[in-house]
């Protein structure tokens, strides 16, 4: 398995952990979606894979990339992992690039400064990558500064940089959320293409369940730091089992769908909301007394698993 997160728990001072016993896997050539509201801990999972956690965070569990535990490796191995095995694509391409450095610097930095490749070779690779992500006139782009490019073009640059070291795992953290709809579609198509061409594993993080269901092979739904449902994308979309997933699907209007829009009641939990039972219980329309007191364990459901007392036999 390319990425295997096992029982990952991250605490950083709140009344509840940011992540609680999260387990998930990403295989080669597979796109795995991770869906949740803001504050659900989805970015923390991506950051754990690169060990970019806050200094004071207490972490337990394992994060295995190609069999090595990221949380336990030495500094040299960690830099190797960050530079060549795993690449991350961020939400806002404009803030991902240093505004005072040229695009060329951004693309070749990793190759020259961490992988020690000669500058000329890195430059040639950068040109190839820019062409591969569909940028016209790559020579001129290398000399430009980030503020001279549009958001969509910058996200292409970020994707190109992510591919620079030939990684096997891509982490896309809300990679298309800050783009407008047409560039969003272009970027998704690009990600899908490079993923398929190179056989990459991808962890696709988004708050948009519809997008995840359409783009990914499997989807994990995250709520208050725990995975509440893990299913193949199509089945999840067609037949959500966990009340939270159902709620998420019901909040978006659909053309020709006569169902009324029903927002999930209440507010997303903060780090100061601690739960004895199911974290979704306060907002769940079907909650019973047991939901308040006992934490549900994942049970097999529709080709995957969901953690809900209602699904227990």
């Amino acid at each position: 398995m390319l990425l295997s997160v096992e029982e990952l728990t991250v605490e950083a001072g709140g009344r509840r952990p940011i992540l609680r016993e999260v387990s998930l896997t990403v295989g080669r050539g597979e796109i795995v979606g991770l869906v949740g509201e803001s504050g659900s801990g989805k970015s923390t999972i991506a950051r754990s894979v690169l060990r970019l956690l806050p200094q004071r965070a207490r972490v337990s569990g394992r994060v295995l990339v190609e069999g090595d535990d990221v949380l336990a490796m030495g500094p040299e191995a960690l830099r190797g992992l960050r530079s060549s095995t795993v690449s991350m694509i961020y939400q806002d391409p404009r803030s991902s690039l240093n505004p005072v450095r040229r695009i060329g610097d951004f693309l070749t930095e990793r190759m020259v400064h961490t992988l020690g490749r000669p500058k000329a070779q890195a430059r040639a690779t950068a040109l190839e990558l820019l062409a591969a992500v569909g940028m016209r006139d790559p020579e001129a782009r290398l000399r430009q500064y980030p503020h001279e490019l549009s958001g969509g073009m910058l996200q292409r640059v970020v994707v190109a940089a992510a591919l620079a070291a030939g990684p096997s795992l891509l982490l896309a953290d809300e990679a298309t959320s800050a783009l407008d709809v047409t560039t969003q579609a272009e970027t998704l198509a690009l990600l899908r293409r490079v993923q398929a061409e190179r056989g990459l594993g991808m962890l696709f993080i988004t708050h948009d369940l519809h997008l995840a269901a359409a783009f990914c092979d499997r989807v994990h739904v995250l709520y208050a730091g725990t995975i509440v449902e893990s299913r193949p994308a199509k089945e999840l979309f067609a037949d959500p089992r966990h009340p939270y997933t159902q709620g998420l699907l019901a909040c978006t209007p659909d053309l020709g769908d006569p169902r009324p829009i029903r927002p999930v009641p209440g507010r997303p939990p903060s780090l100061d909301d601690a739960f004895d039972g199911c974290p979704f219980a306060p907002r769940c329309p079907h909650a019973t007394g047991r939901c308040e007191s006992a934490r549900p364990e994942p049970v097999t459901a529709g080709g995957g698993a969901a953690a809900c007392h209602l699904l227990e036999p």
Binding site: S83, M88, Y90
Partner: peptide, 19 residues
């Protein structure tokens, strides 16, 4: 953010500070 991005690309702390 771009400093975190640089760190995530495996750049050493010294280079992050300087560059």
């Amino acid at each position: 953010d771009h400093v975190t991005v640089a760190r995530a690309s495996g750049l050493s702390e010294r280079l992050i500070v300087v560059r």
